[in-house]
Design a protein around this nucleic acid. Structure first.
Lengths: 163, 163
DNA sequence: TATTGTTATACTCTATAACTATA
DNA sequence: TATAGTTATAGAGTATAACAATA
């Protein structure tokens, strides 16, 4: 139901939601962050769904496509998901032929997760779709503001400083 | 497990997570937003837990404390929660004597949710705690940056323009 | 007939612990 | 003995539909 419609009668009768935006909650950075995230997540989910991907599986796929050859433990820490959750995500992607587990030669316990050609193709499509959705979701801000916002979020998210 | 520790051996052997930050995922605004939100959420949850509150119940309580006298439908739309979820949240707060349902005189179907004295007191404590936690979580940014970030997030979150 | 709040239910995430195979 | 990946399971969170009271 978290899908927005027009306000219901009981809300309009009370004067609309703007009233509530003026409370302390509407000033709370954590609340704003949560809301912005929910909207961005919903936008991404919507365009990924026709491709058979969720935000989670897309982020795994995108990392598997990269040249960095991440192993499961790295994906787990980077995405802040439990290793057991990654198993399920990778199982599904592997079952669809989008991704492959390659045992590391140096340490045969670790699996490197790499994308197949099909995975690369799908990921490219998904990337176009999400970038378009993201642009729409962030359209209320100007380009400079978006750039600054991303810098700030990178800092909050704990990204390494350098460049 | 989403609780951070020091990197595991398999991660350090691969060169640390900074590699993965340099992929396209590390540039994705939606990913950054999700990560920043997860960290802020975890920080808030941690300080609210000793007060017997979760982020959800705290936001309901904070709105009930406000002078705006929100009804359940307004809370539902503002917090983007299904009405049925609010029932459970309010049931719990009411059971603890923090909140009261007051039937609206004009339309007896609607319940206005108002905080009790105990609810106000607890909310005040919770607000101090979360503000402190928030300050710590955002400490990597300067005051000006935080102010600008909040403006941007307000815009993304769909807050009304005026002031 | 429509709407508010409620109940019931199924489904998806998330968290936890125990297991295996390698080291 | 410790770690990577796996399995199994229980809990929290989420979405959906149907219901009673009121409009």
């Amino acid at each position: 139901m978290p899908n927005p419609k027009q306000p219901t009668p009981a809300v309009r009768a009370a004067g609309g939601l703007d009233r509530l935006w003026r409370t302390s909650v509407g000033e709370d950075a954590a609340f704003l962050l949560a809301r912005a995230n929910a909207l961005s997540l919903a936008a991404a989910s919507e365009v990924l769904s026709p491709l058979g991907l969720k935000v989670r599986s897309y982020s795994v796929l995108a990392l598997a496509v990269s040249a960095e050859r991440p192993n499961q433990r790295e994906l787990s820490e980077f995405l802040r998901l439990d290793p057991s959750q990654l198993v399920a995500l990778i199982d599904e992607l592997e079952g669809r032929g989008l991704v492959r587990r390659e045992p590391d030669a140096a340490d045969r316990r670790v699996n490197v997760v790499v994308a197949t050609d099909a995975g690369r193709a799908l990921c490219a499509d998904a990337r176009v779709a999400t970038e378009r959705a993201e642009a729409a979701a962030f359209a209320v801000l100007g380009d400079d503001d978006i750039a600054r916002l991303k810098e700030h979020l990178r800092a909050l998210a704990g990204a390494p400083e350098a460049d």
